[in-house]
Amino acid sequence: NITNLCPFDEVFNATRFASVYAWNRKRISNCVADYSVLYNLAPFFTFKCYGVSPTKLNDLCFTNVYADSFVIRGDEVRQIAPGQTGNIADYNYKLPDDFTGCVIAWNSNKLDSKVSGNYNYLYRLFRKSNLKPFERDISTEIYQAGNKPCNGVAGFNCYFPLRSYSFRPTYGVGHQPYRVVVLSFELLHAPATVCGPKKST
């Protein structure tokens, strides 16, 4: 009989979030998941669920729940959905087409922007091929755009693959930082360890 609440607040209220290319994953298990708490945590810009209804979450049980978190800019949030393409979905964080879970995003301009520009958040701009779903690539190998090998040196047709967002508070919403948490629900042929409040007794 599990009584402890799932530590969603640790994920959502973390002081620092990860850069999207090096997104963070927390496995959540053996706890009571009260998803209604999430609705009250922040004024969400996005709370979209796929393959599951957000209002039914509190009635369900899962084997595992994974919470992935990272920062992107406002106009990239739409890429965090099944079947999307674009720089983020292709080279940084890719959801599977049959994704079961929820994408939660909110504006973090007050936390993640600086007047002089916050350069701490990076994204991958160049990659030889698209990522597979939930693949994480943290390599910093020089990207070869031409025929000549780069031998690890940046220059003509040889690019450092990561680029930094420079978040400034005066930017338009599309270029402001957004914190994203992706909850993916895993149903294996194994005992369910993460249940809503109704199912945990």
Score class of each variant (00 low, 15 high):
N1I: 09
N1V: 10
I2R: 14
I2P: 13
T3N: 11
L5C: 08
C6R: 05
F8N: 05
D9N: 13
E10M: 09
T15W: 06
S19L: 02
Y21G: 01
W23D: 00
W23Q: 02
W23C: 02
N24D: 14
S29E: 11
C31M: 06
V32P: 06
A33Q: 08
Y35L: 14
Y35A: 10
L38V: 12
N40V: 08
P43C: 06
F45Q: 15
K48S: 08
K48T: 09
Y50F: 11
G51F: 05
P54T: 12
K56A: 12
L57K: 08
L60C: 08
C61I: 08
T63V: 10
D68G: 03
D68L: 04
V71N: 01
G74N: 02
V77A: 05
V77C: 05
R78Q: 12
Q79L: 05
I80D: 00
G83R: 13
G83A: 09
Q84S: 12
Q84L: 09
Q84I: 09
I88L: 04
A89Q: 03
D90W: 08
Y91P: 00
C102Q: 04
C102T: 03
A105I: 07
S108H: 01
N109L: 05
K110R: 12
D112Q: 01
K114M: 11
N118E: 07
N120K: 11
Y121E: 00
Y123F: 15
F126M: 10
F126A: 05
S129P: 11
N130I: 13
N130C: 11
F134T: 06
E135S: 07
T140N: 12
T140H: 12
A145I: 05
K148T: 14
P149M: 09
N151T: 09
G155L: 03
G155A: 07
N157S: 03
F160K: 15
S164R: 10
S164I: 03
Y165A: 00
T170F: 06
Y171H: 03
G174W: 06
P177L: 00
V180N: 01
V181Q: 02
L183A: 03
L183R: 01
L187Q: 14
L187N: 14
L188E: 14
H189Q: 15
A192G: 14
V194F: 10
C195W: 07
P197Y: 15
P197A: 15
